[in-house]
Design a protein around this nucleic acid. Structure first.
Length: 590
DNA sequence: GCCGTTTTCGGCCCGACTGTTTTCAGTCG
């Protein structure tokens, strides 16, 4: 009987092992190997368990023969004997204690051993008690301040650990940046880290400031009104907890080293480690300040392009910096020509507010409002794709009837609107059709025949087993009217994992039958995820980037879809809605 | 314990900040 574990659970296990080995003062590089493997597992989109079943675990960087052996044992038996032996040697409370801010393996070990702390909430409770009694400050290596810090960390333990959607964090960062730039000493300020890499969710906000007067900038920053608590402050770096609970790190750098600082704090960590290893091979030691030769000569960089070039690489866009092969590709000068927001010529998935029965939520705005916005954005075409009429409560005949009425109403509104414009915005009329649990579409063929095209999406029964799900999707895609697979995995960031399916089989089908795979720009979806896009490329799949607009201003979220596509290494020529109207019309209705 | 346009052995990224320290260890990113 196999034991299913999520990637997160396995990653945590490896992190716990790394901490235990550190406490036991084992070889530093062995510890680092566990940490690297954990990081690698965390950022893998594919299920580790599934990869194990397919004997593909060696495709994950950082997993060698030994680790793969451990994982094999873990998935077969639910435990790893070697891990249990190691973990038995450290107090059981250590992993929980390490979740506290400022508490690492050594501190956790010292506290757990001294006070005989149990694991979980009981351990936190006892720790709080001894801290309040002033018993911690008397331990060697501890003092009054570290005791207080432990109390502060305990107070934050529940509210912490939160990740936010990219679209939630970005405006917070933009507010801090706009405050910073009110100081004349700030020459430039921009978000770095996972925010700049446009990761789907972010755990903190990193901001870089270009300045010649770092002390004055930090002084200015500490007066920012939304600071809840200052965590650390110096002239190079200040960290604070924002009112929202999010941690914000602000770093300063002089203009002559701005490029190195951007690179360093944009990360990712794994990308930087790889890059520094490459630098070492070329005789440089690399840091946030620049490169140093073996003769201690320093090279500084005002911008990132020069820095990458110095290492023999073409510039790597931030979205690619995840150590997923981008460094090797940049050495060969072979990075894809990534799609850009300005390449987008239209939006092919949006919902309007016509009073026609729909199976899911209707849009909030009229056809004319959507067209106005499309014109304003310079689009050449849009598609209005409301949810299909429901199966319950309507007869097949009524579904056909409301579909015809809808089409007439949209067309009349469109013609009236277009008549008043100098520029043409082309319009397609479709539905977003539910893929029902058995793979049939939620509409009859004669209703589908009324449409220009259909997007097929899963909105129910997300938990079907992989084989059923795959068959279900392939059956739906097989209908000639269906041209787009909408929000393919159905994931909702921070709340729902995506479906399990045989993606290579689905992608192969899509490529062969000219079906387009949607990259949904809705900030809580960002679906198809980057890792699956990479697999889709291998099968020569074409994509379409859509906003799935329900409120007219959602059309401005297109940039999130483009960023997601870029993170998946998707090039302009792989995206349908970068093409002209004739191509799009042919592709969706031909 | 991983990994290889130097290698199947011998390397393995770099620095800021903090607290408790008389020169540094621990934590974090």
């Amino acid at each position: 009987m196999a034991h299913t574990l999520t990637n997160q659970e396995v990653a945590e296990l490896f992190e716990t092992m790394a901490a235990a080995l550190e406490i036991l003062k084992k070889n530093l590089f062995r510890i680092r190997a566990y940490d690297r493997a954990a990081a690698s597992i965390r950022q893998t989109n594919q299920s580790l368990f599934q990869l194990w079943q397919e004997e593909n675990l060696d495709s994950i960087p950082g997993l060698g023969d030994t680790f793969i052996g451990y994982l094999d044992e873990l998935f077969r038996t639910g435990k790893v004997k070697h891990f249990q032996e190691i973990l038995a040697k450290v107090p059981p409370a250590v992993p929980d204690l390490m979740k506290l801010e400022g508490v690492g393996p050594k501190t956790a070990q010292a506290l757990a051993a001294e006070f005989d702390l149990p694991r979980g909430p009981a351990g936190y409770k006892k720790l709080k008690k001894v801290a309040q009694q002033g018993k911690i400050q008397n331990l060697p290596g501890f003092g009054e301040k570290s005791e207080q810090e432990i109390l502060d960390a305990l107070a934050n333990v529940t509210s912490d650990e939160k990740r936010l959607l990219l679209a939630t964090a970005l405006p917070i960062a933009e507010d801090v940046i706009s405050y910073l730039t009110t100081s004349p000493d700030v020459l430039e300020a921009m978000s770095l880290g996972s925010l700049r890499r446009r990761a789907p969710t972010v755990g903190d906000i990193d901001i870089g400031v270009k300045t010649d007067k770092p002390d004055l900038v930090m002084e200015h920053l500490l007066k920012y009104s939304d600071i809840r608590q200052v965590l650390a402050t110096g002239s190079k770096s200040t960290s604070f907890r924002h009112q929202t609970g999010l941690q914000v790190d602000v770093k300063t750098q002089s203009p002559d080293r701005w490029g190195s600082m951007l690179q360093h704090f944009t990360g990712s960590k794994q990308h930087n480690i790889h890059l520094r290893t490459l630098a070492l091979q070329q005789g440089y030691s690399m840091s946030e300040y620049g490169l140093k030769t073996e003769q201690e000569e320093s090279l500084s960089f005002e911008d990132e392009v020069n820095l990458y070039n110095q290492l023999g690489l073409v510039f790597i866009p931030p979205e690619l910096r995840e150590d997923r092969g981008e460094i090797a590709s940049a050495q060969k000068g072979k990075l894809p020509n990534l799609v850009d927001l300005k390449d987008i010529c239209g939006d092919l998935h949006m919902h309007c507010n016509l009073d026609i029965p729909t199976s899911h939520d209707r849009g909030a705005n009229s056809v004319e409002e959507l067209l106005d916005k499309a014109l304003q954005k310079g689009y050449d075409y849009i598609a209005i794709t409301d949810h299909n009429p429901p199966r319950r409560g309507l007869t097949a005949k009524e579904r056909l009837e409301v579909t015809r009425v809808r089409r007439t109403q949209i067309q009349e509104a469109y013609l009236r609107w277009q008549d008043e414009q100098d520029r043409v915005v082309q319009l397609l009329i479709g539905y977003e059709v539910d893929i029902t649990a058995d793979g049939s579409l939620a509409l009859e063929d004669d209703v589908l025949a009324e449409l220009d095209f259909a997007i097929a999406s899963i909105h129910t029964s997300h938990k079907q087993p992989q084989e059923t799900m795959t068959e279900r999707i392939l059956t739906a895609l097989n209908h000639p009217k269906v041209r787009i697979l909408g929000h393919p995995t159905g994931r909702l960031l921070l709340s729902r994992a995506g479906i399990e399916a045989d993606w290579p089989a689905i992608f192969e089908f899509c490529a062969k039958h000219n079906k387009f795979v949607e990259i949904n720009a809705s900030p809580d979806r960002l679906d198809l995820p980057a890792g699956l896009q990479r697999i889709a490329h291998e099968h020569k799949v074409k994509f379409v980037i859509n906003t799935d607009t329900h409120y007219v201003n959602n059309m401005d979220l297109m940039r999130y879809g483009v960023w997601t596509a870029r993170r998946g290494w998707t090039a302009k020529n792989e995206v349908l809605n970068t093409r002209n109207w004739a191509d799009v019309k042919q592709a969706l209705t031909g």
